[in-house]
Simulated scan of single mutants.
Amino acid sequence: MRSDAGGQTDTRETGEEEGGHPPTVLGWIVRLVSLLLLLLLIGILVFEATRPEKEVRFETEPKFDEMRSQNGQFLLPVEVTNRGTRTAHTVRLVVSDGAQERVVEIERMAQAESKTFVIAWDSPPRTVDARIESYEQP
């Protein structure tokens, strides 16, 4: 505690709040919560900076057990899943049965997102090759 020329006490050195009172329980709780939030933010930033980055990785699965006939066409659902940790844009799905080829443009696929598309065929396909031909990374 220090006095200046006017006889007033400097409370910054004693840890007391302005007015000469020590910090209250509420004051300590606010300080503790602020410290915990700051540590949480630092932890999240460190985790994101050190997390291994995986490229975009797709899985495609034709659902033959869910194929149905409607208006003379055979509808085959094809599920596309982004197994990577990054979002992909302008994804181009190509589905072929050997004789015919269908192309589906997918605007955006987020990480760990699955989408199902229904592909129409003139005759029931026995085998289907579903693959991602191209995509753009953000």
Score class of each variant (00 low, 15 high):
residue 42 I to R: 13
residue 134 S to V: 01
residue 129 D to T: 09
residue 66 E to S: 05
residue 119 I to F: 00
residue 65 D to T: 08
residue 2 R to Y: 09
residue 109 M to W: 00
residue 2 R to H: 13
residue 97 D to N: 11
residue 3 S to A: 15
residue 53 E to N: 09
residue 79 E to R: 12
residue 135 Y to T: 04
residue 108 R to D: 06
residue 64 F to M: 04
residue 110 A to E: 13
residue 57 R to S: 11
residue 25 V to A: 15
residue 5 A to I: 11
residue 62 P to V: 06
residue 48 E to A: 10
residue 127 T to N: 13
residue 67 M to A: 12
residue 16 E to A: 09
residue 133 E to R: 15
residue 67 M to T: 07
residue 83 R to F: 02
residue 69 S to Y: 09
residue 81 T to I: 10
residue 10 D to F: 01
residue 24 T to F: 09
residue 89 H to N: 12
residue 7 G to R: 10
residue 31 R to K: 03
residue 23 P to A: 00
residue 119 I to C: 06
residue 78 V to H: 02
residue 25 V to R: 14
residue 65 D to N: 13
residue 92 R to N: 08
residue 65 D to A: 06
residue 50 T to Y: 05
residue 137 Q to H: 10
residue 53 E to D: 11
residue 25 V to C: 07
residue 68 R to M: 10
residue 134 S to G: 05
residue 62 P to L: 09
residue 35 L to V: 11
residue 6 G to P: 04
residue 5 A to L: 10
residue 33 V to I: 11
residue 104 V to K: 10
residue 117 F to M: 01
residue 70 Q to S: 14
residue 81 T to M: 08
residue 130 A to R: 07
residue 113 E to Q: 15
residue 34 S to D: 07
residue 117 F to N: 01
residue 51 R to V: 02
residue 26 L to T: 12
residue 59 E to S: 14
residue 59 E to R: 13
residue 83 R to T: 09
residue 100 Q to S: 13
residue 53 E to M: 08
residue 52 P to A: 12
residue 98 G to F: 00
residue 123 S to W: 07
residue 89 H to A: 10
residue 15 G to C: 06
residue 70 Q to D: 15
residue 62 P to E: 07
residue 37 L to M: 11
residue 25 V to L: 12
residue 41 L to N: 11
residue 42 I to Y: 03
residue 75 L to S: 04
residue 13 E to W: 13
residue 120 A to F: 02
residue 100 Q to A: 10
residue 67 M to F: 00
residue 13 E to Q: 05
residue 97 D to I: 02
residue 18 E to V: 12
residue 50 T to M: 05
residue 38 L to D: 13
residue 23 P to D: 04
residue 60 T to H: 03
residue 107 E to I: 06
residue 85 T to S: 15
residue 120 A to K: 02
residue 64 F to S: 01
residue 77 P to T: 00
residue 7 G to S: 08
residue 40 L to V: 14
residue 50 T to L: 03
residue 54 K to T: 14
residue 14 T to Y: 07
residue 70 Q to C: 07
residue 11 T to C: 14
residue 40 L to G: 15
residue 10 D to E: 12
residue 10 D to R: 04
residue 48 E to N: 13
residue 4 D to C: 04
residue 88 A to V: 04
residue 105 E to V: 11
residue 136 E to N: 11
residue 23 P to K: 08
residue 118 V to H: 03
residue 101 E to Q: 10
residue 58 F to V: 05
residue 93 L to M: 05
residue 25 V to S: 12
residue 90 T to N: 15
residue 75 L to W: 12
residue 61 E to M: 14
residue 58 F to A: 05
residue 96 S to G: 06
residue 40 L to M: 08
residue 41 L to P: 04
residue 52 P to D: 04
residue 136 E to R: 15
residue 76 L to E: 03
residue 104 V to C: 00
residue 36 L to V: 13
residue 5 A to M: 09
residue 109 M to S: 04
residue 136 E to K: 09
residue 131 R to V: 12
residue 46 V to Q: 05
residue 30 V to E: 07
residue 136 E to M: 04
residue 69 S to T: 15
residue 128 V to W: 02
residue 57 R to P: 06
residue 52 P to I: 10
residue 72 G to D: 01
residue 86 R to P: 09
residue 132 I to Q: 00
residue 82 N to P: 00
residue 73 Q to S: 14
residue 127 T to K: 11
residue 71 N to G: 05
residue 4 D to Q: 06
residue 91 V to A: 07
residue 73 Q to W: 06
residue 47 F to K: 11
residue 69 S to I: 02
residue 77 P to N: 01
residue 99 A to G: 03
residue 31 R to Q: 11
residue 81 T to G: 05
residue 104 V to N: 03
residue 78 V to Q: 01
residue 97 D to M: 01
